[in-house]
Design a binder for these strands. Structure first.
Lengths: 137, 137
DNA sequence: TAACCTTGGCTATTGCACATAGCAATCCAT
DNA sequence: ATGGATTGCTATGTGCAATAGCCAAGGTTA
């Protein structure tokens, strides 16, 4: 069967992202985490005390959508919200959060390595710069 | 602010795909089409008479999810479903469908060109092969 | 100080893309 | 001819993101 989509880089991008996200979600799910959770935990750990809106800007997630995300990882005991100035809250990982993230980091590293090695060696080094050019301003 | 996500190719893939899909969706929306519609129309035109399940396999969309998709483009007058053997239906573009697709093709080509030229010349040729390696078996 | 605009966190709702489970009719192979 | 697989479909749920609006708390300027 003819598939004209196979000639379109945009379609390849869509399918590749979809396949890789499904794979990563499956690998991270046994830890009780979702993809968005992992990205939030990583940024919070690297920037203890960030506010929810700063985090949202870094992850390109709307303020409104940060709420259920942060509730979820707070309910899981991975995060504390401390009042900062009566308007903002500062976010910190709990010990459980740091330890969960340490475990997740292994999964992340394994996955990223697996992903990168799926691409043939001659193209490998070009993947990330090419992708970054597509979304970073 | 530190952003450890920026080192992860998987995260770049996610963000790049999200950005590009948003861009394409915005460009194709004035035609009254969605991304999934366009992919279906392209495959149907290239393979007149395909069945819904064949199409679903090509697009990696579950049978169940083909239903609203095909209903939508049929309701828009772009598609006819003809009974094939009492179980399967064969799919064909209407004249309106072919003409709509001809218009869409211009948008698609412009978008794909824009996308590809966002990546620096030295990486450009590597993007599609790298992406294809990530999802094609 | 008072008026104003902006920001931060939140609720509520919606849309899209995708998944699973189950069903009835049809077909195909042994 | 019976049993298994396939087709199209309904119904439902999930993950992620968007929008509109609310309220309280800052910041800025007159």
């Amino acid at each position: 069967m003819k598939d004209p989509l196979l000639d379109l880089p945009g379609y390849s991008l869509r399918r590749a992202a979809s396949a890789m996200m499904a794979e990563f979600a499956a690998r991270i799910e046994p830890l009780g985490l979702r993809i968005a959770d992992v990205s939030a935990l990583l940024v919070i750990e690297a920037n203890p005390g960030v506010t929810a809106s700063q985090l949202g800007r870094a992850l390109d997630i709307q303020r409104a959508n940060m709420v259920p995300l942060l509730n979820r990882i707070e309910d899981a005991g991975l995060l504390t919200r401390r009042p900062l100035d009566g308007k903002s809250h500062s976010l910190h990982l709990t010990e459980a959060g740091a330890s969960k993230l340490a475990t997740a980091r292994i999964t992340i590293a394994t996955f990223e390595d697996w992903l990168v090695h799926r691409v043939p060696a001659e193209h490998r080094a070009h993947l990330k710069p090419a992708l970054d050019a597509l979304w970073r301003d």
